[in-house]
């Protein structure tokens, strides 16, 4: 299995928000690892998720599809999927394929946390 590790942590001052720290690459070979982690959170009733992409080297359509496939369920439960620290190389492809219009993207975790607190 190629290299992707997902560090899952609870924010100290908001137990409803979960932070996922991605490190590595996501493609068709390992996208189920990401899918399983997100399903696990949804099963726990966690619908506010911050995805820190600082260590993300690459994401294919398989990985993008995993995020898109849970977006409806998240929104129906008044949650959100927010991406932070997206490397320029990946942000560029998100913009080119239109993903940056679907997902909220922030420079850092603070902005995403603030918006969750505001109910955005």
């Amino acid at each position: 299995m190629p290299e992707i590790t997902i560090l899952d942590s609870v924010l100290p001052d908001d137990k409803d928000v979960r932070l996922l720290l991605l490190d590595g690459s996501i493609d068709a070979y390992n996208s189920e690892v990401l899918s399983d982690k997100l399903k696990e959170l949804l099963e726990q009733g966690i619908y506010k998720i911050i995805v820190n992409c600082d260590g993300l080297k690459f994401i294919s359509s398989s990985g993008m599809g995993v995020f898109m496939s849970i977006e409806d369920e998240i929104l129906e439960n008044r949650g959100g999927l927010k991406f932070v620290a997206v490397p320029q190389k990946i942000l560029n492809v998100f913009q080119k394929v239109g993903l940056s219009d679907i997902f909220k993207i922030y420079p850092d975790e603070a902005g995403a946390i603030t918006d969750f607190k505001k109910g955005l």
């Binding site: 398989s62 898109m68 977006e71 219009d101 679907i102």
Partner: peptide, 15 residues
Amino acid sequence: EMHKKRPRSGMGVFI
């Protein structure tokens, strides 16, 4: 179409 369907797969050729 991507915004509307939010597909899990089938985006490769478009991308």
